[in-house]
Amino acid sequence: MEQTIFYIFSTVLVLSAGAVITVRNPVFAALFLVLAFFTSAAIWILLEAEFLALTLVLVYVGAVMVLFLFVVMMLDINLTVLREGFARYLPVGLLVAIIMVAQLAYIVGPARFGLDKFPAPEPHGADYSNTREIGLVLYTEYLFAFELAAVILVVAIVAAIALTLRKRVKTNFMKPEEQVLVKSKDRVRLVKMAAEKRDDQQAPND
């Protein structure tokens, strides 16, 4: 049963991952990437890694890919320009691809990751909490790496904001906090002056 589910999901995963780079419409490519993320989350759940699987859906599918799709939909991509020189670059591309596949096969091949090296893990009981286990390891054994990653991410956020932040001078942005704080005396000046008598003319039309 579990094997059947695994094969269904992994077939969908491989097909959609292939479709990401082969379909012509970039919006479809992004949607296939979403499908690939989602099915890999399902496979992670089969591995009893439900925390990671749900986080994958939440972060990559729910946020990152939404923004990605947002951008791809608004881009006006000219495919003919992109396809120019396809034949010319093909040999180089093929060479790079073959080298990468060979490297991957060498590293992840059965010599190192075979079933005899990694037997199937024991299934955990119903009270096993994946979230708790990850938290325990993350905040004890891998604390330094975790903090390091956090600092790098904060630096990245600050850098991204600093790069895109600019004061626009000519637009009339309204600042709600200033609008709320306005008092009547800031806008209206009440002037009090004594009444004057006009004697050189007739009384104004009354």
Partner: peptide
């Protein structure tokens, strides 16, 4: 009755936006 049900709900509700984006496009 799953262990990380709060996370599951957050993940599922975040998927709903795809329907809207795809419909709009």
């Amino acid at each position: 009755d799953i262990d990380a049900s709060l996370l599951y709900i957050l993940a599922m509700t975040s998927l709903g936006v795809y329907g809207i984006i795809i419909a709009g496009w």
